[in-house]
């Protein structure tokens, strides 16, 4: 097991080197530029090589059960220095942030967009009870806990939230790192996009804010501090927003949509 762990670490160094060697890549489609960062290549390489098809011989040693569970068990600790870095980004900007503090609070309500946009689409394409779990939020720990307590994870609602959880874990960071700069090209302000990056999942926030930084390096400190402050606020307010706003709103919309659907 010790030896496998060394293989894993060497593999990590290899992936980092490859990802950094590929570096920044810009893909321009019309007016929209998609920026791919080394972090995107890092997650793509590790996910693709982790597929069953590639897991043979030496690769089987790297992606051994012990190594994969090591990575998932300690991922959160590997992330802690990043979270500490955000403190240093917020500190110099604290006055600016407090000045527009109320904007941070109202933008947190934007997380209701999961219900407002997601639920009608879900009902439209024929989902019913799964839609409750799938659109309550972006399916992070808070929603997972709420749905499993209320409906259990074996229920249809539970399956909905679990699916979003899996999809978010696999593709969340990737999705936001591509989506955030698209909105930038569509004319939204970087400050607003930075605040919105605090969606409640650290890897998704990293995906969104990193590409914004790559596109606007001169605004690095503003972007990172706004994203981090909003993320912190979401960690505090997220549960309350879900229980007191998202749940009642979802219940009302679900009833209306499904009734209209039957008549």
């Amino acid at each position: 097991m010790k030896r496998q762990l060394i293989f894993l670490l060497l593999f990590v160094l290899f992936v980092i080197t490859t990802a950094e060697w590929i570096g920044f890549q810009n893909i321009t489609i019309g007016a929209i530029t998609i920026t791919l960062l080394p972090l995107v290549f890092a997650i793509l390489i590790t996910m693709v090589l982790g597929m069953k098809f590639f897991r043979q011989g030496f690769m089987k040693q790297i992606y051994s059960k012990a190594n994969v569970s090591f990575a998932s068990k300690y991922l959160i600790f590997i992330m802690l220095p990043l979270m500490a870095r955000y403190g240093a980004d917020v500190a110099p900007q604290i006055n600016d942030i407090l000045q527009v503090g109320w904007v941070f609070i109202i933008q947190d309500l934007g997380n209701l967009g999961t219900v407002l946009i997601g639920l009608p689409i879900a009902v439209f394409i024929g989902l019913r009870r799964e839609a409750i779990g799938a659109t309550l939020g972006i399916g992070r720990e808070g929603e997972l806990a709420y749905i499993s307590e209320k409906y259990t994870l074996e229920s249809k609602e539970g399956r909905g939230v679990l699916s979003i959880y899996i999809i978010g874990t696999l593709f969340g960071a990737l999705f936001f790192s591509i989506f955030a700069p698209i909105l930038l090209d569509l004319g939204l302000r970087p400050e607003a996009l930075a605040m919105a990056s605090g969606v409640g999942s650290s890897s998704m926030m990293t995906g969104a804010s990193s590409t914004l930084v790559a596109r606007l390096p001169e605004m690095e400190s503003t972007i990172l501090s706004y994203a981090a402050a909003s993320q912190l606020l979401t960690s505090f307010l997220g549960t309350f927003t879900m229980i007191f706003l998202a749940v009642p709103l979802q219940r009302f919309m679900y009833k209306t949509l499904v009734r209209g659907d039957q008549s």
Partner: peptide, 16 residues
Amino acid sequence: TTPILTFAGISVADRL
């Protein structure tokens, strides 16, 4: 961010 996402990619391997 690069090392974190490297670990994230490995950690989801069994969940694909």
